[in-house]
Nucleic acid binder design. Structure first.
Lengths: 226, 226
DNA sequence: GGTCTCCTCCACCGGACGGCGGAGGGAGAT
DNA sequence: ATCTCCCTCCGCCGTCCGGTGGAGGAGACC
């Protein structure tokens, strides 16, 4: 028997009508996704979500009145059985990432993301309790060197939430496919210690398991193939 | 795989006697494996193999006189009904990998591999015609487009043993960080089915767990970051 | 001194994972 | 017609993993 699968209900929150239209166009082309509502501001978003009870909310960060972060907080704090929230932003060097995570967002996307990525992100967030993505990933990328922009604030935030030295080592060994006990042997510490570090890495990256952590490491440039 | 049949006949080729001893010790502890001969150089390997007709040859790369690559070429080119050759090396990211594949090797192993891995690798290569890690990986890369390498022979072999359609789908979903149950939901099949496919993927890639499979997918170009 | 983070480790627990063997059905090849 | 491969699913079982809630020490900062 195949899954009946009622479509995923989505609400769009963005102050620009054109952006909403674009998102709607992309999402509506997928049979398993349905845009059930829109809001043009953060303030408007809360009641809309409370009424429509979507599965996923695509939330712009930058909005007049209540911004996306605060709107996310309110939704997650006040709506019973709240939806997953994916925070959408325009710029790459955006310090909102951490705020979004702290507010409880399940994911983070750039507006320039390709349609397929967007669709996939919605599905992943909705059906699983996961989502990785450019979350702390950005911190890793920044730390990993290369173009370190000015953006001091973001860097400071990144520092606060970034991995400690040992945690970074652990992540690196995870990307070699090692198990906890193997990592312990390699680092000459107890397995319990490795477990602690792994747990910290997962939390800071906002991911569920080591596999997702490795994915995040690749996606962030923390490690590169070849 | 059904019949226990006669043990797998193995020949070891390495210029260091201690290495051969170690390998022999590991392999001999398995009832279904039998080391029938050894060679201390690439030149010596060819006649030994021709005479003993093993099922699998464990071939060191780095050897005086004829190196492991050339020895592999000669064996596969001159011995009728040739054995599978697993090339063994000390270092990771060794450029020998591709040379080995081009020469027709069926697998590639690091000397630091654990005993269980070694044993499994021999069995996999001998019985299931599957290529080990870097090779299968290479098949994926080739299939995924970007097939830049010439080495047609290796590709042909790889294609023969590549992942089935559904297995490829499963691997792709694994690289999205999904759990088995999530994959099952997405593919509209039972969790047991996904487990089967995942198991097949792990075997064919010659890896231990899903994290390593994801790493292999990235390293092969089966998926690309960003 | 008090507070902070980091590193090290522990016990407990539930769930996910992976190995094992088996089974049935369908499609294509020989 | 037989064989082989693929896809689907089942149960059992041991291990690993990740979460929770600790604890103690070292160093930094205030």
């Amino acid at each position: 028997m195949s899954t009946p699968a009622s479509p995923l209900r989505i609400v769009l929150v963005d102050d620009e009508r054109m952006v909403r239209s674009a998102l709607r166009a992309i999402l509506s082309s997928e049979p398993d996704l349905e845009v059930v509502g829109e809001a043009g501001s953060g303030a408007e978003a809360v009641p809309v979500v409370r009424e429509l009870r979507p599965d996923v909310v695509l939330m712009d960060v930058r909005m007049p009145d209540v911004d996306g972060i605060r709107a996310t907080e309110r939704i997650l704090g006040t709506v019973p059985d709240p939806p997953r929230v994916i925070v959408v932003t325009t710029f790459e060097n955006d310090s909102y990432v951490y705020d979004a995570l702290r507010a409880g967002a399940s994911g983070f996307l750039l507006k320039r993301a390709r349609a397929a990525e967007l669709v996939q992100a919605v599905r992943v967030v909705a059906r699983s309790d996961s989502l990785l993505f450019p979350a702390a990933v950005r911190a890793l990328a920044a730390e990993h060197g290369a173009a370190r922009g000015p953006d001091r604030e973001a860097t400071a935030r990144a520092l606060r939430d970034r991995l400690s030295e040992r945690e970074a080592v652990v992540l690196r060994l995870m990307t070699d496919g090692l198990s906890n006990s193997e990592i312990a042997a390699r680092m000459a510490v107890g397995p319990a210690t490795v477990k602690t570090h792994v747990g910290a890495v997962l939390t800071k990256l906002g991911v569920r398991d080591r596999t997702q952590a490795v994915i995040a490491a690749y996606e962030s440039g923390f490690v590169t193939p070849g």
